[in-house]
Write a protein that binds this DNA or RNA. Structure first.
Lengths: 169, 169
DNA sequence: TATTGTTATACTCTATAACTATA
DNA sequence: TATAGTTATAGAGTATAACAATA
């Protein structure tokens, strides 16, 4: 808030010293973005040995908890477009972690399952995720973790998820 | 946690009903990601009429609060690579919101300023941001907003920012 | 030799349109 | 005709390498 009124900014060059973020440091959206980036970064570190990105992890968890569900259901639940989900699933299938099977009831759709290797892999993922979660929890303080999650859910709910888009024209 | 032991998943097709997210719904990192996506979405809606993305907004705010600082300083403060900052700044210059000026002291560097139009534009940005911030604050409850920001800062601090990378080889 | 800005490139994520095969 | 999966494409965001001008 401090600072500039409506005039062209002058030629001074303050050069050194820390930058003034103004109100930005206390903008909820900005803090969210930076926290999320830090979280992703730690996720990547925790899962580096397993070579798995956050999105891939969430897909495996969802298939594991809902074996046999349609590809489009898993995608929609995670807010991923059907079209973008294809290559994601291709990769998991290539690594023999998950598989598509033709659904009997509706031969258009694919039912998704973890492979045996995928189920085994989940154990390692659980450990890596615990490591990641512990890191974040330690940062906010254990006693604040549940409240933080609650507040984040309030922001996140009613998002773009659970609803698939109709193909536009 | 409920569910799958180490065996290949069977062919059942539970078909309908909501998906089981397992522990995922209470993963801090996952909640962060969904909240951040929802926040970005609301940001875009609030700034749609102004045709400005979150990154562009943060750049304008930082230049406004630190006129005359080097391009690389602004970029580093926001965690943006120098190389990626170029097209961003090109766009802001093309729209006559900000400008580069050759620095006197070091003719390699560009000092960044808002244009007169840019300073005027900030007023509209402040209003749009207030609208956006109010939306988020209402979702978490006004009495929780400050605490949430504090907790997010703990996660976000020590991130990839304020430090520029050395050019690799 | 190191730094600033730049270009070129590549990979991920996201978004849209159009195709296919089934329904 | 509508839906599930796919393909192709395009826009952002992010990452690295290399170059010119300057220090």
């Amino acid at each position: 808030m401090a600072g500039n009124i409506a005039r062209k900014q002058t030629d001074r060059e303050p050069s050194d010293g820390p930058l003034d973020f103004g109100g930005l440091s206390n903008h909820l959206g900005y803090c969210l973005r930076r926290a999320q980036l830090a979280s992703f970064q730690n996720f990547r570190a925790s899962f580096a040995a397993l070579d798995l990105r956050p999105t891939q992890y969430s897909v495996l968890v969802l298939i594991n908890n809902n074996p046999g569900r349609k590809q489009s259901e898993i995608a929609a639940a995670l807010g991923i477009k059907r079209s973008n989900f294809v290559s994601l699933m291709d990769e998991l299938e290539r690594r023999n972690l998950a598989e598509r099977r033709k659904a009997q009831s509706d031969r258009r759709s694919h039912a998704l399952f973890l492979t045996e290797a995928g189920v085994q892999f989940m154990k390692k993922l659980d450990l890596a995720h615990q490591h990641h979660q512990d890191h974040l929890t330690a940062k906010v303080g254990e006693e604040n973790s549940a409240l933080l999650i609650e507040l984040l859910k309030r922001i996140g709910e009613g998002g773009p998820f659970e609803l698939d888009e109709a193909d536009g024209e």
